[in-house]
Design a binder for these strands. Structure first.
Length: 417
RNA sequence: GUGAGUGUAGCUCAGUGGUAGAGCGCCGGACUGUGGCUCCGGAUGUCGCGGGUUCAACCCCCGUCACUCACCCCA
């Protein structure tokens, strides 16, 4: 047997309803908030992510499925969607064509990571991006929409966390203040934190090692180092969230890993998901469009992990649509006629199953029962001769004979058996 | 990349150094034109893979792969 690739998953019939539930909610919520859908390729130039996501990030350094194609180009499976959407926005001049550059996209991403609960090598994201709006009102609207999406799915116990990490002007000062506050205590931290102190000091706030916590708790907060413009912006964002009546927690420890984030960052954490508990995360990235060769345009957005949303969905969500009828043929003579009956009902828009080959009536009926069909349509010698069909309602076991032409209407909900 | 746990029937799992099991599911019958309930019968396994120890390995040892969870990273 040839097995699937590690970290990839087959979404089987018993789970696909939950996926459709999440995807439908995503599409509907985005439409309500004025977003339009964009679909970009799964493969991109490697340099798009080196420049966009950040050459120093783990995603680019060790997690990309990158290769040289037959033409000698460096290609990669996309590890995230934001750089692709920025590219499409710039490449096609979308700000000219659209009233607002509010885009969303749905699709698979690829990262070579060790799989665990809620984390896979091929995973799926809803990606939402807004280009060209600097006003904190859009930060508030994006975060409120993310929250509405989670609510729409009926997820209990989700928590919204926000922070501001400052801009290119004020963040370096905060980084320096962090290192200064750490001083000689860097050597007391865990190995991961000592590495972070070298590469990306902000990420020390992500540390989970209990021994490090007293030191980390004493570190300065990014909010206290914001420049005036960033401070005003953050106040504005919170004013909007308060006006919406959203409950949220400001956490100075919410620092996101991608290089491009500026000012607002946020996450929504789910309950019962294990260690990978971020249902969605995002923030503002005011320099990214220019960084990728476009005009100077601010940006903000988020990505939601569909696997995690499916995982967090309440029990029983996304049940399958029931089958309307299962046609049972009794005796060889009835088979051909039964197949035509099934065809006619299907063309009339009904969901109809029928068995194949001369199985016994008993086994056909067992299969009808197992299929969850609402009705059983019995066609034997008697019915054939009379031009009728026996319509049996499965739940009540009540049945009646109906003229063939009237079968479709007899299957309608509320039609008495 | 690191650590721990787990790999036995389609699924959930028991099992003992000496001929592979249960429950559920599946197929058939009891009931030749009435499903679910009950009873009876049946099929299905390279015991993850490779090597070693042994008269004999599903069991013990080594390696390897996969899965799960956690670290890292992040949706």
């Amino acid at each position: 047997m040839i097995s699937g690739i590690r970290g990839t998953r087959d979404i089987l019939p018993d789970e696909v309803g939950r996926w459709r539930r999440v995807e439908r909610a995503a599409v509907e919520v985005c439409a309500r908030y004025g977003y339009v859908e964009v679909r970009t390729p799964v493969i991109e130039r490697e340099e798009l992510f080196a420049k966009g996501t950040g050459a120093s990030t783990d995603i680019v350094q060790k997690e990309m499925y990158a290769f040289t194609d037959k033409g000698g180009e460096r290609i990669t499976l996309r590890p995230e969607a934001t750089p692709s959407l920025v590219r499409a926005f710039v490449e096609h001049g979308l700000e000219q064509a659209l009233p607002f550059a509010k885009l969303y996209s749905l699709g698979p991403m690829f990262r070579y990571e060790r799989p665990q609960k809620g984390r896979y090598r091929q995973f799926h994201q809803l990606d939402v991006e807004v280009f060209g709006i600097a006003d904190p009102a859009i930060d508030g609207e994006v975060i409120e929409m993310a929250s509405a999406f989670v609510d729409e799915l009926g997820l209990e116990g989700a928590e919204l966390v926000i922070n501001s990490v400052g801009c290119h002007a004020c963040r370096p000062a905060f980084g320096a203040a962090l290192l200064a506050a750490l001083g000689g205590r860097v050597s007391d931290l865990c190995a991961d934190c000592r590495r972070r102190a070298e590469t990306n000091p902000l990420r020390i706030f992500d540390c989970k090692a209990p021994a490090d916590q007293p030191i980390i708790d004493a570190l300065p907060h990014s909010e206290d180092y914001l420049c005036d413009a960033c401070r005003d912006h953050f106040v504005g964002v919170r004013r909007h969230l308060d006006a919406y009546g959203l409950s949220y927690r400001v956490s100075h420890r919410l620092v996101r890993g991608l290089d491009y984030y500026t000012r607002t960052t946020f996450e929504i954490l789910g309950a019962g998901l294990g260690a990978q508990n971020a249902l969605l995360g995002g923030g503002r990235y005011d320099g990214l469009v220019k960084q990728l060769g476009g005009p100077e345009r601010p940006g903000i957005g988020f990505a939601a992990g569909l696997e995690r949303l499916v995982l967090a969905l309440p029990e029983g969500a996304g049940g399958a649509e029931p089958v309307d009828a299962f046609v049972v043929a009794l005796g060889d003579a009835a088979w051909a006629s039964a197949r035509v009956l099934a065809r006619d009902l299907r063309r009339a828009g009904l969901r109809v199953l029928i068995d194949y080959g001369g199985r016994s009536s008993k086994s056909q009926m067992k299969r009808a029962n197992r299929s969850g069909a609402r009705h059983m349509l019995i066609l034997g010698g008697d019915e054939l001769a009379a031009g009728e069909v026996t319509v049996k309602e499965m739940d009540s076991s009540r049945q009646r004979r109906v003229a063939r032409a009237a079968v479709a209407s007899a299957l309608a909900p509320g039609s008495a058996p």
